[in-house]
Design a protein around this nucleic acid. Structure first.
Length: 282
DNA sequence: CATGTTTCCTGACAGC
DNA sequence: TGCTGTCAGGAAACAT
């Protein structure tokens, strides 16, 4: 399941491959489920645009598109927003490469290659975002929450203050921090020594400080290793990441804790498989 | 508003 | 071998 490090890896890979490319034509699958914007509108907005830059915001991949169809104006253009959901992939392929099953969108590029959105489980979403022009500068897609990698200690702590839900559920809430999913929630809570079930609003300042540091360390390390390849995640080249080798609790239920040897416990919390060490996490 | 529950979807896997 | 049943999980919709 792509989370922040996997989405960052994909966005960077796609950026390297398609930055500066012009979208010549667009095909969108007949089923409308994956689209927040109607297929007709999406196709008409994308067609003829130049891709200026591709990057990550939360778990979303953002394509900055040229503001006018000639692409030589400074006014800011629309953005194409891609959310990979559980099984979504963005592939850059030569046109002659067979189109995989479950392909929902194909952007044909001026170079002759194609950018393809493939998603077996259809949890992914595509949308057009128009930067809102308020006082002067246009404001691009911001995502639902705050960035885990750059948030200050003060802002991080205030996110959880007075919150009565479990800290793990709060970490998964994209309106607070965006980009954190099941793997990195479990891994950062283990490294911070905090039980996933602890009420968010009852954590001490020290615990919240440890949690922020652990989360940022884990996310940065995972980005360096190309993300975690569990189930079928691969990057834009079909290459697997390696952070799954660094997992200390995720999917390790019943196996000994790498620190103290106690069997890792597995439970369901916030509807998700949740893994923790009952000795190391208080 | 805050929090909990249900739903979507299909590949993978267990069990027969 | 091949069928059936169960599970996983991000986020929106719905319920409390």
């Amino acid at each position: 399941m792509p989370e922040l490090p996997e989405v960052e890896t994909v966005a960077n890979g796609v950026d390297q491959r398609v930055r500066g490319e012009v979208i010549e034509s667009v095909w969108l699958g007949s089923k409308p489920e994956p689209f927040k914007t109607s297929p007709d509108e999406m196709a008409s907005v994308l067609t003829g645009r130049r891709i200026e830059r591709v990057y990550r915001v939360g778990k979303h991949i953002v394509f900055d598109l040229a503001g006018d169809l000639a692409g030589d104006e400074e006014k800011s253009g629309p953005q194409w927003i891609v959310h990979l959901g559980m099984t979504g992939r963005l592939l850059v392929s030569a046109a002659k490469v067979p189109v995989p099953s479950h392909t929902h969108a194909i952007l044909r590029l001026a170079s002759g290659r194609e950018l393809r959105f493939v998603d077996a489980r259809r949890f992914g979403r595509l949308a057009i975002h128009w930067p809102e022009v308020k006082t002067g500068a246009a404001r691009g897609f911001q995502g639902p929450g705050q960035e885990p990698l750059t948030i200050s200690s003060e802002d991080f702590s205030s996110l959880f203050r007075h919150r009565k839900t479990a800290i793990k559920a709060a970490l998964l809430n994209q309106k607070l921090l965006h980009g954190v999913g099941n793997i990195y929630a479990d891994e950062s809570l283990f490294r911070a020594g905090i039980r996933p079930t602890r009420m968010a609003g009852r954590l001490s300042k020290e615990q919240l400080g440890r949690l922020r540091a652990a989360l940022q360390t884990v996310l940065r390390h995972a980005i360096e290793l190309g993300g975690s390849s569990v189930s079928d995640y691969v990057d834009a080249d079909g290459v697997r990441g390696f952070f799954q080798l660094e997992h200390r609790v995720y999917l390790r239920g019943g196996q000994p804790c790498l620190v103290c040897g106690t069997p890792i416990r597995k439970m369901v919390l916030a509807g998700r498989g949740t893994h923790y060490c009952p000795t190391c996490q208080k």
